[in-house]
Design a protein around this nucleic acid. Structure first.
Lengths: 338, 338
DNA sequence: CTGTTAGCGCTTTCAT
DNA sequence: ATGAAAGCGCTAACAG
């Protein structure tokens, strides 16, 4: 069978306590002893049983990562970044994918992370007070990604401002009728961007003296399909918009397809700007607001790990990372690559 | 503090052994006793400590999932599907992302899954004998996704045949000079598709009496960028191909962009077919070979979980799932949606 | 600097 | 059907 700490102790001729100390790099172990322990451990190909260690120490060396989806660009990037950072720090990543409204309800009811994580990272979910309470009941530090709340450490972008910059870009090109393709702010899986990006859209219009029209705000559900159908509705309005702001690149792709299928040209007939600057945006020649996903994820993870060691040191803070307007051919004909 | 099994036992007026049995649904517990235990557990909001349970039982109720990337379509789909299936079965998902060649080497050297998973699922990695040995040393059932090996349960598609069908589609349209955009078969992060899809490509050509030309096989590294650059090289060949088979949709997207930027039309000047039928393929009007990712992942997971309960019952088998040719406008002008 | 010892919170015989 | 008791393999005081 596999070696246990006792086997190592016997081979090294020391007690199991010394083995434990030596292997974990604790101070107060003589160098020669340490060497002997390491040699024995190597020879026996020993690794500590994480469960025994966790039971004895109370620390799990595990972080729970909660996401509403795993197969969407933003969340896949987040998981990638967080996994790497955790692995480097010697932590395991326990993945929790909410999946749908039902999965979400069950998740917060059961709280499957109970007693098995040292910390939690939650990505881009609009949480109810009850859900926040459930997280707090875990009694572990919680990091929020893409949202913010007093008492929680968080990393995010300024969605309101970023959306406003996107729409201002369209305004600066002379557009006055600008459609919005957004997410459902009442969806049970609601996540944060839809609310804020819509606010930024309205802010920009009002600041330009344009009153937002409900008919120009349509739902695209953050999918390509949804974006395409939303664009159909926008094109069908009596006095159709000359520009569209989609709250995500994916929805913008759908809109581009709809517009072109309708025989209209981008950006001459209808300009389109997205949000994210995800991997395919350049491919689609799509103007967009770039957001630094890896940076947000890394920032949150780093501070979360720090919080595990020393909780309650200070009021958790929110870090807001900058976004950037990326102008491509879908709004600026002079830049079009096609 | 949080309740332990003793608290529940005291409240229910039984021994901790009975609590353990009742809560796990073991037989030989009187119905009335069971009810009392459940009532007590509910009242105290008790959940068993997984670590104590694992230490005592030796079972971890955890599956390790090893992927070379998490932010690529195929793997994100896999993780999504597997997570859902595991959660439903009461298992945790421990995610291991190899990241790069160095990460991969370290991974198989350290074997961070040791002593912490009941089973392992490996997705689309070409594994060396040493790496297979390392996995076997975990002494846990292993499921392979997208590859196959004697002694391991596996789910995959027939990459050789599927690639052949894709190329035969091009041949049936009259194309004789067909370029290949593939992955690097010598890459340290090598995964399985490149080898097999290239073989299928060559098989199809030979069967049609065409000798494969090395100049028409270029590397696209399974990225959009790489696919675009590969297409540039193909277009620059003296007698340029009239059709291109890309081993993934992503590379096909890059190729489409390159072709259009060069002022050529798809499919009239150059036809393109991809592989995967991932989410954006329809958007790009790309012909492709559809592969059932969720089905493969679910099949492997289901059988893996079964193997945990009853290992060695029978020789592990490989399930091969069917792929499907999806013809769109990038090969068939009559179907073009643009 | 090192060893002894008492748990951590369960599961699992073995009795009864 | 239930309980007593012996671990599972570590960590963390506490001695010395």
């Amino acid at each position: 069978m596999v070696a246990s700490i006792e086997d190592v102790a016997r081979l090294a001729g020391v007690s199991i306590a010394t083995v434990s100390r030596a292997l974990r790099g604790l101070p107060d172990v003589a160098a020669t002893t340490r060497d002997r322990v390491f040699a024995a451990a190597t020879e026996l190909d020993y690794v500590a049983s994480p469960f025994a260690a966790r039971l004895a120490s109370g620390r799990t060396a595990t972080v729970g990562v909660v996401v509403p989806f795993v197969n969407r660009w933003f969340f896949a990037e987040v998981i990638d970044t967080v996994e790497t950072a955790l692995r480097k720090a010697g932590f395991d990543l326990l993945l929790y994918n909410l999946g749908d409204g039902h999965g979400r309800a069950r998740f917060f009811e059961v709280m499957p992370m109970r007693k098995r994580v040292d910390a939690v990272l939650v990505a881009s979910l609009v949480l109810s007070d009850d859900e926040f309470a459930a997280l707090s009941s875990l009694d572990a530090p919680v990091a929020l990604l893409g949202l913010e709340r007093r008492g929680f450490l968080a990393a995010r972008i300024d969605d309101v401002h970023s959306a406003r910059v996107a729409v201002e870009h369209l305004l600066s090109l002379g557009h006055r009728r600008i459609g919005l393709i957004g997410g459902d702010t009442d969806d049970p899986m609601r996540f944060t961007p839809p609310l804020h990006r819509r606010d930024g859209y309205r802010d920009a219009l009002r600041a330009a003296g344009i009153e937002p029209e409900p008919a120009l705000e349509v739902l695209g559900y953050f999918t390509v399909e949804g974006g395409g159908e939303a664009a159909e509705r926008l094109l069908a309005t009596p006095h159709r918009p000359t520009a569209i702001f989609a709250e995500s690149d994916e929805m913008a792709y759908g809109a581009l397809r709809t517009i072109r299928r309708a025989g209209l040209r981008v950006p001459d007939d209808v300009a389109v700007i997205g949000f994210d600057d995800q991997i395919n945006a350049e491919l689609m020649d799509l103007s967009t607001m770039r957001q630094p996903v890896a940076e947000q994820a890394l920032d949150a993870t780093t501070r979360l790990l720090a919080a595990i060691g020393a909780p309650e040191i200070a009021e958790p803070t929110t870090v807001v990372l900058p976004t950037e307007l990326i102008v491509r051919g879908s709004t600026d004909p002079s830049r079009s690559v096609y």
